[in-house]
Design a protein around this nucleic acid. Structure first.
Lengths: 159, 159
DNA sequence: CAATAACCAATCTAATTAGTCGGATATTAC
DNA sequence: GTAATATCCGACTAATTAGATTGGTTATTG
């Protein structure tokens, strides 16, 4: 598992798509505009996302991309995996003395950790990222109400 | 949080150090040999690890590096942070229309996720990675005992 | 003093990342 | 049917990062 800018762009774009889910197709031009990612780069990312069946496309005017399934069924690990293709990680495959020697121990430790990280990201779906934020915002508003409502100008309290 | 080959090398090297902890200083030449990472690249990584006070060095013959504290007090996130310096992630800082517009929502969603990942890696220490493996190995041996002990030569069962 | 090994900096190359360009194809609206 | 939209596609380029190389200096040990 690796987590680079490429994966970040992909997750960001998919979150944008999830936020606008149910409003019809979202064009890459819109995502490009909103997220500050170049259109052609998005095209490359979405080619991979489409091949991984995470999004489907609608061509022509008014077209764009849509999630293939509910945001609650799309997991971060799937997104990262589809754009950030994995490298062989261990650098150990070719070396003869490495199989089950002491040398190999550390490689296995790394791959254990790596799969833990992967598992972690496999449990986080797009909908829950969005939901978590809504909960936090509600909590913040409640907190603000209790503590600062009286002292603060009304327009700063209301959201 | 990003997780690249650089961070992987650093974690691998630190795991190697942790495995050999208590045997006196471990030289970079040894790690280089065992893990297949070039000596000069290790030097660059360990310069950063030392600046982050994760390792201390002993110069001269028989010298090398040692963990500054118990492996159970060194966390993966600390290692990754010290070598894989963070970029500004959002690409939103400079854009005027982004602050609290709809555009910024997705950026915040990403940064929420990013801090979740960071938190996750902040909870995993080197000792537990090693321990987890030992537990798994013991379990594998137990399983083997129950199923195959009678049929297998003794020297392959005992470790 | 000779060997070892950390320390340091600059430089180079290879690989990857990020973004560009010029199209082709499908779809819609007029 | 044609003009506009927007996906699709491949090749190309610029910039950054990864990793290697070189050529040392300094500290420690025997």
């Amino acid at each position: 598992m690796r987590l680079t800018a490429k994966g970040r762009y992909a997750v960001t774009a998919m979150l944008d798509l999830a936020v606008h889910d149910g409003e019809g197709p979202t064009s890459l031009a819109d995502i490009s505009e909103r997220q500050g990612i170049s259109l052609s780069y998005l095209e490359q990312l979405f080619a991979k996302l489409r091949r991984s069946h995470l999004v489907k496309s609608v061509r022509g005017p008014g077209g764009g991309y849509q999630l293939t399934r509910a945001a609650s069924s799309i997991y971060v690990a799937q997104i990262v995996d589809s754009v950030d293709e994995i490298v062989d990680a261990t650098r150990c495959a070719g070396r003869a003395n490495c199989n089950h020697g002491e040398t190999c121990l550390t490689h296995e430790l790394w791959s254990d950790l790596s799969s833990q990280i992967h598992q972690f990201l496999s449990d986080i779906d797009l909908a829950s990222i969005i939901a978590k934020r809504e909960v936090r915002e509600r909590a913040a508003r409640q907190h603000m109400k209790r503590d600062d409502l009286i002292r603060m100008p009304a327009e700063e309290v209301e959201a």
